[in-house]
Simulated assay, not measured.
Amino acid sequence: MALSAVLKSEWTKIRTVASTSWTLILAFLVTVGFAALFSATADPSKIESFDPTATSFSSMQFGQLSLIVFGVMVVSTEYSTGMIRTSLAAVPNRSRFLLGKMAVATGLALAVGMLTSFVSFFLTQALLGDAGIGIGEENVLRAVVGAGLYMALLALFCMGVAAMLRSSIAAISILIPFFLILSNVLAGFEATRPVGQYLPSNAGSRIMLVVPDAFGSPETPYGPWGGIGIMVLWVAAAVIGGLLVLKKRDA
Rank of each mutant, 00 (worst) to 15 (best):
Thr124Arg: 07
Thr55Arg: 13
Leu156Met: 13
Ser205Cys: 08
Ala171Gly: 03
Ala2Leu: 15
Leu186Phe: 03
Ile228Gly: 06
Ser45Met: 09
Ala35Trp: 02
Ser59Ala: 15
Met151Thr: 07
Thr124Ala: 07
Ser117His: 01
Leu244Trp: 13
Ala105Ile: 03
Asn93Ile: 01
Trp225Phe: 13
Lys101Ile: 00
Val74Leu: 03
Ile169Asn: 12
Trp11Phe: 14
Leu186Lys: 02
Ala170Cys: 07
Leu209Trp: 05
Ala237Met: 13
Ala109Leu: 05
Tyr79Trp: 14
Ala105Ser: 11
Ala187Met: 04
Thr53Gln: 02
Ala152Lys: 05
Val235Leu: 07
Phe157Tyr: 08
Gly63Glu: 05
Ala170Thr: 11
Ser117Asn: 08
Gly223Asn: 00
Trp234Met: 00
Phe189Trp: 01
Ile172Gly: 02
Ala251Trp: 01
Leu99Thr: 02
Ala89Ser: 11
Lys46Pro: 07
Lys101Cys: 01
Ala27Tyr: 10
Ser21Glu: 14
Ala2Thr: 15
Pro44Ile: 00
Leu26Tyr: 13
Arg94Glu: 06
Asp213Ser: 03
Ala155Thr: 06
Gly216Arg: 00
Ala236Cys: 10
Arg249Lys: 14
Pro218Glu: 05
Phe178Arg: 06
Met60Phe: 15
Gln64Tyr: 10
Ser117Gln: 03
Cys158Leu: 09
Ile68Cys: 07
Thr41His: 11
Met102Val: 12
Glu137Asp: 14
Phe38Lys: 10
Val161Pro: 04
Val235Met: 12
Tyr150Gln: 10
Ala42Ile: 10
Arg96Met: 13
Met151Val: 09
Val104Ile: 10
Ala36Met: 15
Ile181Tyr: 02
Ile68Leu: 10
Ala214Asp: 05
Thr12Ile: 14
Ser80Gln: 12
Cys158Gly: 04
Leu209Asp: 08
Phe178Gln: 08
Asp130Cys: 04
Asp213Trp: 06
Gly160Trp: 03
